[in-house]
Amino acid sequence: TYFRERNVHTCLDTSGICFDPHQEVAYRKLLSVTSLVILDIKEIDPAKHLWLTGKPLEPILGFARLTADVEVPIWVRHVVVPTITDNTDRHYRLGFFLGSLKNLQAVDCLPYHVMGTAKYKELGIPYHLEGIPAATKDIAAKATRTVVEGIKAYRRHWWSPIKTQHQS
């Protein structure tokens, strides 16, 4: 509350991978002093996410849902990796999930780049995406449009006003 009382903006930039629903009270406390969450979602398909990151997807989605529950604004980033995360169906599904988050303020699909590969070589760490080319801005822009289509589809279906028989 120290920062909030002084109008200092606090941002949590995370992949959400550490979220543990058994520790929800601690996460709620953290989010109570957070002005914005920037959340990276690498992949929406659970099996592909596990292959890509070595970690399950559900903690990330659970964390995203918690941010919505406590009404902390969220921006979502998704890196478009050619041949791996560059998939129209999964971009739409990502958007459909994001459409359920009433606290979603922005989504940004970013083009994958290869600038970090040298660091992995220097450290002697195998690079999981070796040989994958960088993505273009056009590919990322197309992904963003598809994600937004998914968001709109969810909201049209689930957030549309309920009509009663008395309405004309």
Rank of each mutant, 00 (worst) to 15 (best):
residue 120 Y to I: 07
residue 41 I to Q: 00
residue 23 Q to V: 05
residue 75 W to F: 14
residue 142 K to M: 07
residue 29 K to G: 08
residue 115 M to H: 15
residue 148 V to D: 09
residue 167 Q to R: 03
residue 79 V to F: 10
residue 149 E to D: 14
residue 7 N to Q: 04
residue 142 K to S: 06
residue 160 S to N: 06
residue 125 I to Y: 03
residue 13 D to T: 01
residue 37 V to M: 03
residue 91 H to L: 07
residue 98 L to K: 02
residue 18 C to F: 11
residue 156 R to A: 11
residue 69 D to L: 03
residue 122 E to W: 05
residue 33 V to T: 01
residue 31 L to P: 09
residue 49 H to W: 13
residue 163 K to D: 08
residue 128 H to A: 06
residue 83 T to G: 10
residue 100 S to K: 14
residue 151 I to F: 02
residue 62 G to C: 12
residue 14 T to M: 03
residue 143 A to E: 03
residue 118 A to T: 14
residue 75 W to Y: 13
residue 143 A to T: 05
residue 98 L to F: 04
residue 133 P to H: 07
residue 73 P to N: 01
residue 13 D to M: 10
residue 151 I to M: 08
residue 98 L to E: 06
residue 151 I to G: 05
residue 123 L to S: 02
residue 97 F to Q: 10
residue 146 T to R: 12
residue 13 D to C: 08
residue 164 T to P: 09
residue 8 V to C: 08
residue 1 T to I: 09
residue 125 I to L: 12
residue 35 S to L: 10
residue 46 P to M: 00
residue 23 Q to G: 04
residue 91 H to P: 06
residue 98 L to N: 05
residue 145 R to C: 08
residue 36 L to W: 05
residue 55 K to M: 14
residue 137 K to V: 12
residue 168 S to Q: 14
residue 38 I to D: 00
residue 10 T to V: 11
residue 102 K to M: 08
residue 53 T to Q: 05
residue 163 K to W: 12
residue 35 S to T: 15
residue 124 G to V: 07
residue 117 T to I: 11
residue 97 F to I: 04
residue 132 I to P: 05
residue 137 K to T: 11
residue 165 Q to E: 15
residue 142 K to R: 12
residue 9 H to T: 09
residue 109 C to V: 10
residue 141 A to D: 15
residue 94 L to W: 13
residue 77 R to S: 09
residue 141 A to T: 11
residue 76 V to L: 01
residue 164 T to F: 13
residue 22 H to N: 12
residue 7 N to R: 08
residue 15 S to I: 00
residue 163 K to C: 08
residue 52 L to K: 10
residue 166 H to D: 15
residue 26 A to N: 05
residue 79 V to Y: 00
residue 145 R to P: 06
residue 157 H to Q: 14
residue 121 K to V: 11
residue 71 E to N: 14
residue 160 S to T: 07
residue 103 N to M: 04
residue 51 W to Q: 15
residue 40 D to L: 00
residue 87 N to W: 01
residue 49 H to T: 02
residue 149 E to Y: 10
residue 110 L to N: 00
residue 160 S to I: 05
residue 41 I to L: 06
residue 57 L to F: 11
residue 19 F to Y: 15
residue 155 R to F: 00
residue 140 A to L: 11
residue 148 V to Q: 13
residue 99 G to M: 08
residue 82 P to W: 01
residue 51 W to E: 15
residue 70 V to G: 01
residue 17 I to V: 12
residue 14 T to F: 04
residue 146 T to M: 06
residue 149 E to K: 11
residue 119 K to P: 13
residue 142 K to T: 03
residue 142 K to F: 07
residue 123 L to C: 04
residue 31 L to V: 02
residue 167 Q to E: 13
residue 131 G to Y: 10
residue 121 K to Y: 10
residue 158 W to G: 01
residue 27 Y to W: 15
residue 151 I to C: 09
residue 125 I to P: 13
residue 35 S to V: 07
residue 88 T to H: 11
residue 144 T to L: 14
residue 43 E to R: 02
residue 146 T to V: 15
residue 44 I to R: 08
residue 10 T to H: 03
residue 82 P to H: 02
residue 147 V to F: 10
residue 43 E to P: 06
residue 26 A to D: 09
residue 4 R to H: 07
residue 37 V to P: 04
residue 63 F to N: 00
residue 144 T to H: 14
residue 156 R to D: 11
residue 13 D to R: 11
residue 42 K to W: 04
residue 135 A to S: 12
residue 25 V to P: 01
residue 108 D to T: 06
residue 144 T to W: 13
residue 73 P to L: 02
